[in-house]
């Protein structure tokens, strides 16, 4: 049997844009040697050879060019080194990995996005293709919450999206932290009770910190949204992206290959999923 020998080898990706995005995150645009060919919700393993690699969500929609966009929080040894990288520097990329979202699950339906903190970055890879074909979807609602105003991602885009016909954007912070703020104060669960939604025709996509999911799911359930209408994009430790290193396992499924996007009803039998 002949097997490709490059499973673990990253390919070069040159930084063509790098800038601070929030108080804790930076925005990166990379140019790869060939198109990534990803689906919404997929991720890459991002490398600095000599330091290591880590899973990073793709925040741009599917593209035909060689561009890859990401939002990276300085949180570990690798991302601290990446934060010092500038335009022209080369990172390593493996992937794309994971199942991702299927646009067919959303077409013809009202769509609700619930994004907590950094969760907007991966969900943007789905929001962009949905908004690009606005006419193929029903009413679109984007709830985006973060810790404080200076932690808000994609502020300009959220405002632009909110100005689109049939798109409602609800921006929240946990606390204004004495900063100027033109959105609401509260958790992403708060607006769900008052949303004008048709529970029978809604599809929701959720991404945020681990603690967020069960409360959003409870709020949606209270509105009559069934678990087969909800998709969650989960975070786990990942060391390979190939369904083998074991770190991302959720009961018997591998988050990196079976997910990271799951239909909630498929998680009912996995008690480790939404802990």
């Amino acid at each position: 049997m002949s097997v490709a020998t490059e499973a673990f080898v990253p390919r070069p990706a040159r930084i063509i844009e790098a800038r601070p995005f929030t108080s804790r995150e930076r925005f990166y645009r990379l140019a790869l040697d060939r198109p990534l060919g990803h689906h919404p919700g997929q991720f890459v393993m991002l490398n600095i050879l000599g330091i290591g690699e880590a899973p990073i969500s793709i925040s741009c929609g599917p593209r035909t060019d060689n561009i890859l966009e990401m939002v990276i929080r300085e949180i570990g040894s690798l991302t601290q080194v990446i934060a010092k990288k500038v335009v022209g520097d080369v990172l390593g990329v493996r992937g794309p990995f994971g199942s991702g979202f299927d646009l067919d699950d959303f077409r013809g339906r009202d769509v609700l996005f619930v994004c907590g903190g950094l969760g907007l970055a991966p969900l943007r890879s789905l929001i962009l293709p949905v908004l690009a074909e606005r006419e193929r979807y029903g009413r679109i609602t984007i709830i985006s919450g973060c810790r404080a105003p200076d932690a808000e991602l994609y502020r300009d885009e959220l405002r632009l999206w909110g100005a689109m016909e049939g798109v409602e954007v609800i921006r929240l912070v946990d606390s204004t932290d004495h900063q100027p703020w033109d959105g609401r104060v509260g958790l992403v669960t708060a607006p769900i009770a008052d949303l004008e939604i048709d529970p029978g025709n809604l599809v929701a996509a959720l991404c945020g910190p681990p603690v967020m999911y069960k409360f959003v799911v409870m709020a949606l359930a209270a509105r009559g949204v069934q678990s087969n209408q909800i998709f969650v994009d989960l975070e786990r430790r990942m060391r390979c992206g190939l369904g083998r290193c074991g770190h991302c396992q959720i009961n018997d499924v591998y988050c990196c290959t079976d997910g990271p996007v799951f239909r909630l009803s498929d998680l009912d039998r996995l008690p480790e999923a939404l802990r």
Binding site: M1, V3, T5, E6, A7, L242, G243, R244, T257
Partner: peptide, 14 residues
Amino acid sequence: VNRDGDHPDPHYLA
């Protein structure tokens, strides 16, 4: 395990 999926493990299999 190592032959499974889209990414068989080249190091093990060799």
